[in-house]
């Protein structure tokens, strides 16, 4: 059973010739089958957590540990982490001119699965996954993220989630910029992946809206670089009513 354990994670970033500590000791354990929502105000470090787990070179880990089933994730390169089962659905996926979606998906599935998927079953698999996400077949021939609308980018991220079947899925503000219809379609995709019970999900969001579609088992409030409160789904209701104000003040005082 896949378990991601984050212990006392500390991360800095270089900005304006100064080193700034963004994550100040994050502790979190995500087990297969569980869904954890991480909620917090802008600038609290939620996205830094997501990118640090994926291994973005911009962030420097200065302390703490991250393990996946006991393996040291921090010692792995970005691609090794993905092959080990960590997937990050990005808030701002980048354009890759000249590389078609279909070529990209197949290359990445081959890398993650360790062998090229059989062509016939693969074509069917992609077609079905795209239909579920209400994506036109012509989408596969477009270049990765090039000229995609906000909603198309997010669907494309969730399409990859469905095809790559990670053991830990980190969804970084997947709900941002989506209208209600797109949010529902994307959430359904996430739920299909969750239903097989094989993925541990870390759902990072600013708003409670997406939690109406994706029910979390745990909710954590993130502020000033650490988790300041944890609870069940009811904690999200409290945030819905009260906002982050009390946490922001608390964080500033700390």
């Amino acid at each position: 059973m896949a378990t991601l354990e984050i212990h006392d994670l500390r991360v800095t970033v270089e900005a304006d010739n100064a080193t700034k500590e963004i994550l100040k000791g994050v502790d979190l354990t995500v087990k297969q089958g569980e869904t954890h929502a991480i909620m917090g105000p802008n600038g609290s470090g939620k996205s830094t957590l997501a990118y640090s787990l994926a291994g973005h070179p911009k962030y420097t880990v200065t302390g703490g540990t991250v393990t996946l089933d006991g393996e040291d994730v921090l010692a792995m390169t970005v691609d090794e982490r993905a092959r080990a089962g960590v997937f990050l659905a990005m808030q701002y996926p980048v354009e890759i001119p000249g590389v078609s979606v279909s070529n990209f998906l197949r290359t990445s599935a081959t890398a993650v699965r360790g062998e090229a998927p059989k062509l016939r079953t693969w074509v069917k698999e992609v077609k079905e996954a795209m239909e579920h996400l209400h994506m036109d077949p012509s989408f596969a021939e477009r270049n990765v993220n090039e000229g995609f609308s906000g909603g198309e980018k997010k669907r494309h991220e969730i399409l990859q989630l469905e095809l790559l079947k990670p053991s830990i899925a980190i969804l970084d503000e997947t709900d941002s910029g989506l209208d209600v219809d797109a949010l529902r379609i994307v959430s359904e995709g996430v739920n299909r992946v969750r239903e097989n019970g094989e993925v541990g999900t870390l759902l990072i969001t600013h708003y409670t809206r997406i939690l109406r579609y994706i029910k979390p088992d745990f909710v954590h409030v993130f502020s000033a670089g650490r988790i300041v409160e944890s609870g069940g789904a009811e904690l999200a209701d409290k945030l819905e009513e009260e906002g982050y104000e009390s946490y922001v003040k608390g964080g500033a005082a700390a």
Partner: peptide, 8 residues
């Protein structure tokens, strides 16, 4: 980074 984060 994007491509590597997909295992490539």
């Amino acid at each position: 980074f994007y491509l590597m984060s997909r295992g490539i």
